[in-house]
Design a protein around this nucleic acid. Structure first.
Lengths: 216, 216
DNA sequence: CGTTCATAGTGAACAACGTTCATTATACTG
DNA sequence: CAGTATAATGAACGTTGTTCACTATGAACG
C-alpha cells in the first residue's frame, strides 16, 4: 500500500541524484564533452536506465535549465519584495546587476537558457516570469515619476538586451581585453538606465561613465 | 610546370566549394545536425577527403566564421569612410544599426561568430578590427565634444554589449513577444548613446523612447 | 510459502558521428 | 612509357544517443 509510495519517493530521489550528477559533469567537463554514458557510469547505472527518468538528453537538459531559472527567479523575487523603502531606480539597477551576476556565477545555466541553440525551440522556457519582474521594476520607476513616461514593455526589452549582451559576451569571450569587469557592468547599467530618468542632469551614481580616459 | 599551379588553383577552388556547401547545409539544417559525412556526401566526395583541406570540423567552422567576419568588417569600413560630412553621433548610430542589421540579415554568420560555443577558444578571432571601427567612431564623438569626456574603451565595450544583446536575442528567441523590431532597435541604440551626449536635453532623434505607454 | 505480476534495470544492438590510415587511382614529369 | 607525387578512397576505430527484448526484484495475494 504505502510501499508503492515509497517506490515513488525512491524514484524521485534517484531522479534528483541523476540531475545532480549531470550538473556536476556538465560544470566540470563542459557541454560538448558531456555524455549520457558518462553520466550513467558516474551514477553506477546502465545507459538505458537514465531513459526511465528522462525522455532523452534534451529533456534532461531542460530540467537542469528549469532548476537554474527557478533559482534566478527566486533571487529576483526576493529582491522585488525586500528593500521596500528603496528608491525604485536603485532597485531596478540592483535587479539588473543581480541578473548579470547570476549569469556570470552560473555560466552553464546561462548558456543552457539563452546561448545554446535548440534544434526547434519547443517550449518558450520560463523566461517570462523573470521578465515580469523586469516589467514590474520598470513600471514602478515610471509610476513614481523617476522615469520619463516611456513605454514599459519596449523599455524592459531594451534593458534586457543590454544586460543579456554584457552577460553573454563576458561568458563567451573571456579572452577579449575587457576593461575592469565591475566598471564595465556599471557602465552598461548606468548607460541603459540613466537615459530614461526624468532628470538626467542628476548625476550621482553614474560615476564611472565620467571617468577620465585611462587608455586601458 | 604551370600544371602544379593549376593543381593548386583547383585545390583552392575545391576548398571554397566545400565551404560553400558547408555553409549551405549549416544554414538549412542548423548547427547540430551538420555533419562531416553529410557534407562529404553533398559534394560527392568521401568523408576522408575533407580532411585534405581542413584539419577537422572545428577548423572548417573557423574558416566559415572568418569569412563572415570579413563581410561585417567590410560593411563597417564602408560606413566609416563614407558619409564624411555627417555628424559623428549620427554616424555612430548608423554604425550600430549596421552591426545589428548585419546580424539579423546573416543570422548564421552571427551565430558562427558569437553564439556558438567553442570548446577551448583558440585564436581570439578577428573581432578586433571590427571593434576598432567602434573605438574610432566613439573617439570622434568625444573629440568633437558631442559626448561627455567618457573613457573611449569602456564606452565602446558597453555599446557593443548593448547591440550584441539585442542582435543575439532577436536571432535566438524569435518567438518571444517582441515589440516592433525597428522601434526596439532604435530604443536600444538611443538609450545606449543618448546618455553619453554632452547635452542630453536635446531630444530630437530619440522619438520612440518618448512614446506613450501602449500596453503591447 | 509459493505464485503472480508490475516495475526497475540491464546490456547488446543500431545507426550515426568525427577522425585516421593503409591502400588505390590519378595525373603530371622526366 | 616508367616513375612519382599527390588526390581520393573506404574500411576501420572508438565514440555518441537511443531502443528494446530480456532478466532481476520485491510487493501482493491465495
Amino acid at each position: 500500500m504505502n510501499a508503492i509510495l515509497r517506490r515513488k519517493q525512491h524514484k524521485a530521489e534517484l531522479k534528483t541524484q541523476i540531475l545532480a550528477a549531470a550538473r556536476e559533469i556538465f560544470v566540470r567537463d563542459g557541454y560538448e564533452s558531456f555524455s549520457m554514458r558518462k553520466l550513467a557510469q558516474r551514477i553506477d547505472y546502465s545507459p538505458g536506465s537514465i531513459y526511465l527518468h528522462f525522455k532523452n538528453k534534451e529533456e534532461l537538459f531542460e530540467s537542469l535549465v528549469e532548476e537554474s531559472f527557478d533559482r534566478l527567479l527566486r533571487a529576483l523575487n526576493r529582491l522585488k519584495n525586500g528593500h521596500a523603502h528603496q528608491d525604485p531606480v536603485a532597485k531596478l539597477k540592483t535587479g539588473l546587476r543581480a541578473y548579470i551576476d547570476f549569469g556570470l556565477r552560473n555560466p552553464n545555466d546561462y548558456r543552457f537558457a539563452f546561448l545554446l541553440r535548440r534544434p526547434l525551440q519547443r517550449r518558450p522556457y520560463k523566461v517570462h516570469p523573470a521578465f515580469d519582474v523586469m516589467r514590474y521594476l520598470v513600471g514602478r520607476c515610471v509610476e513614481e515619476k523617476r522615469f520619463r513616461p516611456v513605454d514599459v514593455e519596449s523599455t524592459s526589452q531594451a534593458l534586457w538586451a543590454a544586460i543579456h549582451g554584457i552577460t553573454s559576451l563576458l561568458i563567451q569571450r573571456p579572452t577579449f581585453p575587457w576593461v575592469a569587469r565591475r566598471q564595465l557592468i556599471d557602465q552598461v547599467i548606468n548607460n541603459a538606465v540613466d537615459s530614461l530618468m526624468l532628470r538626467p542632469d542628476q548625476e550621482e551614481e553614474t560615476g564611472v561613465s565620467h571617468a577620465q580616459p585611462s587608455g586601458v
